[in-house]
Amino acid sequence: MEITTKTFDELTTKELYQILQLRSEVFVVEQNCVYQDVDGKDEKALHVLGAKNGKVVAYTRMFRPGDYFKNPSIGRVVVSKDQRKHGYGKVIMQASVDEMDKRFPNSTVELSAQTYLLKFYNELGFVTEGEEYLEDGIPHVRMVRKL
């Protein structure tokens, strides 16, 4: 899997389409969650794409401090269902954490994690802060990692 990081303006139309399609496939269809994925925040985000044979199969978006949360943050972590067996979730997240460390050294990175993925994020150095809450009807928890 080839990983690249781009601003919104650097994304090709094809890449943007593939990103939105992947997010919709997983977050709306697979998780059966009706919510507004196209939330107006993509233009501020840095986009981390994991592509295989020219197709986006893994993705995260990252925000500078204050653009989404107080701290730099990672969100919309997603891997295509048929590609999860390859460990691409950890690969794309590690690439995102490494990119955050380059851009915002000695910072605290924040994310809103679906509760069922706590172990996944713990293995990447994130720890839970606060109580569980519902986001779009799905249990989440705030997690942070010191860089």
Score class of each variant (00 low, 15 high):
92 I>W: 05
131 E>V: 06
44 K>E: 08
32 N>K: 15
60 T>K: 11
122 N>L: 02
5 T>D: 03
53 N>Q: 14
66 G>C: 10
85 K>Y: 10
58 A>G: 12
117 L>N: 01
23 R>L: 05
61 R>E: 00
109 V>R: 02
63 F>H: 15
121 Y>I: 06
17 Y>T: 00
30 E>G: 04
78 V>M: 03
64 R>M: 07
110 E>A: 11
65 P>G: 01
40 G>A: 00
41 K>T: 13
87 G>E: 06
123 E>R: 08
97 V>L: 09
33 C>K: 04
127 V>C: 04
94 Q>T: 14
117 L>Y: 08
48 V>L: 15
29 V>E: 07
65 P>W: 00
2 E>H: 13
65 P>E: 00
135 E>Y: 06
48 V>A: 11
55 K>W: 01
112 S>E: 10
37 D>W: 09
33 C>Q: 05
53 N>L: 00
67 D>F: 02
76 R>W: 01
22 L>S: 10
62 M>C: 15
100 M>C: 14
88 Y>W: 10
142 R>H: 15
94 Q>F: 02
120 F>Q: 03
24 S>Q: 09
100 M>V: 00
8 F>V: 07
98 D>I: 02
33 C>V: 12
48 V>H: 08
114 Q>M: 10
45 A>V: 03
6 K>Q: 13
14 K>N: 12
36 Q>G: 03
42 D>F: 05
